[in-house]
Design a protein around this nucleic acid. Structure first.
Lengths: 351, 351
DNA sequence: TTCCGTAATGATAGCGCTATCATATCGCCA
DNA sequence: TGGCGATATGATAGCGCTATCATTACGGAA
């Protein structure tokens, strides 16, 4: 059989194409079976008798054979790739979600191909077109605010689609997330109940999810007849810790008797805390702070910071598990999953 | 020509295979040229006359044609994919590097396929095998501590390879990073020069790069005859902000007169700061703190925290630019790039 | 005028795999 | 005992693209 391999190598060198690595035909020859049988043994061993399976396994490891995913994708019209679109890589939120996605995946054959939309619907559309052209096994996209065209593309995509991060009606296919509106509302209601009256909103980036948190905040304040447009301080600048202090100063300049802030995210909350420390503003007595996401540092900070804990990791994990279920033909309990959030009350809002 | 399309659809439906989307043959027929000419016009327009190019462009947009990357990869033995291996997704360091990679890529045809090695050399090897089987256009891997087998795999891979994050000799192919040993040394020397004498090291995870920072720390202290094994407090647990405080307590239990800590990374440094605030330990007077990486929050903290600024984003960007240069056949200035770090001195180390 | 290099286009033959249909074998029940 | 469904294997024909070689047209040097 050494001869077989040697002669193969010979013919490889003579021929003008080819990658030089063993193909399924080489394995088949060595195992004394047809190529298609090797293909079956590799993809679903139950289709092949135990004896042949053993022969094939031996041949595979002897040659160090690894199937070519591109050839496989071309022949089966399906790439072992899940396309994942996130709006940002700076944002730790998406890092956590990505981690959940990878963990949910385990070490099967599926690969992740990620695209960064930079919060741009146009870029999202371009990337989806690009991803779909390779007929991925599934797509995971962030948010529910796709353009009309993008939605149509996804609807006609003939693979599982999961929209993540938000909770809402009418998903393209499946959806895993939570309600940002409710998150904003719950956080704000907590501040109201804790006795604060001049509650500001501090927000950066102001993407659709931030807008919904703001809407929740506003709805809570209006219900309590405490809303005042001057209380809202936002910017389109991407969020950074250092922006928190700046926005707090802006807010205080507009509303001198501000006694609490609900921050769009934890980075801003942390920046607000540091600014308060620096300016000698007592937290929570003169100023309460509530964040959003509940990063690890929130419960460690001094004083510890109240926040809305969001299921970022779990969203990624669930999304992938739903995809895997669908690909395996298993039934999905529900195509729409609300993973909820949790208000974590800490020192920063306890007057 | 509508007939052409219609009849194509017909035959599609009748046939048993196929994706249902337009192929290069459809475009060729519509434009009245051979398929290979369309292929050329798409890959290198200069090979095709202006008239045909116009015909082809029209046909492409009329049909909404997008090339199938899988077929392309199979035919050309080269996938438009760059494999990227990172050890962790939790770590913000790699999020920044990833951002650099994506930004360096621009919006060409190249896609990123990422793998998470979880700091395991075995997993790294498995993933590299998997990635190489699709003959990627390039590979970017983290660190320089690959197993012997992994190195051999990469060496025989027939595509550009970039090792990132560290600076060192004898890369597999190309390398972009900085010296972690020097980083640890510079930070520690700064503390010594600032007058601190009982300088602790606090580290989590203790992957190879952390080990090198520790070695740099030790080398600086030994040169000043200040080293004491009790000063070193490490754990294999992954780093978290909340771990910083814990490790500081451990360190203080061993060394009561500890007057400074060099933290393996900024998360720990932040945790140490909060713990000091909570315990009433004055920073920097009774305790100096120096971090590593210089995340945005370091200069905002109160007191602001000294750190080593690392070129995380730039490492990713440079790595991709080098790959692109190589793929385009352009010369590379140097296959080994030291992107340096910078000591940022702030309030936390100024007694 | 002849020849040859260059530019533009095409024909052909795969790349390495799998979908589909065909064939063979083996109980097992009527 | 014949027939029929289940099980195991194989032969064939692509998937959609590009590498390679072939052909044609054209212009300038000899």
């Amino acid at each position: 059989m050494t001869d077989d391999i040697a002669s193969r190598d010979q013919s490889r060198k003579a021929s003008r194409r080819g990658s030089g690595r063993p193909t399924i035909a080489d394995v088949a020859k060595l195992a004394g079976v047809a190529a298609i049988t090797v293909s079956r043994a590799l993809r679903d061993p139950s289709l092949v008798s135990a004896e042949l399976r053993a022969e094939i396994d031996t041949a595979v490891s002897q040659l160090g054979y690894a199937p070519d995913p591109n050839a496989r994708a071309l022949a089966s019209s399906r790439a072992d790739v899940i396309g994942v679109l996130v709006p940002s890589l700076t944002n730790i939120v998406f890092a956590d979600t990505l981690r959940g996605i990878y963990d949910g995946l385990g070490d099967g054959p599926l690969q992740i191909q990620m695209g960064n939309t930079h919060y741009s619907p146009r870029e999202e559309e371009r990337l989806i077109r690009m991803f779909l052209s390779q007929r991925p096994s599934a797509m995971i996209v962030s948010g529910i605010d796709q353009t009309e065209t993008t939605r149509k593309l996804l609807e006609s995509a003939d693979c599982p689609i999961v929209q993540i991060m938000e909770y809402g009606d009418g998903p393209v296919d499946m959806l895993v997330g939570f309600s940002h509106f409710d998150g904003g509302k719950v956080a704000t209601n907590h501040l109201i109940e804790a006795g604060y009256r001049r509650i500001g909103f501090i927000g950066a980036r102001m993407d659709p999810r931030s807008q919904r948190r703001l809407a929740g905040y506003r709805s809570a304040l209006e219900a309590a007849q405490l809303f005042d447009p001057k209380l809202v301080t936002t910017t389109l600048t991407p969020s950074r810790v250092s922006l928190g202090g700046q926005l707090l100063s802006d807010a205080l300049a507009k509303v001198a008797d501000l006694d609490a802030v609900f921050c769009n995210n934890d980075d801003l909350a942390m920046g607000v805390l540091f600014e308060c420390q620096r300016a000698g503003i007592a937290v929570p007595h003169r100023m309460a702070i509530c964040g959003f996401n509940d990063l690890d540092m929130m419960h460690v900070a001094y004083p510890s910071l109240t926040s809305i804990r969001t299921p970022r990791y779990e969203i990624g994990r669930q999304a992938v598990l739903m995809v895997l279920d669908r690909l395996a033909g298993r039934p999905i309990a529900s195509p729409i999953v609300d993973l909820r959030f949790e208000l974590k009350i800490r020192e920063s809002t306890m007057r």
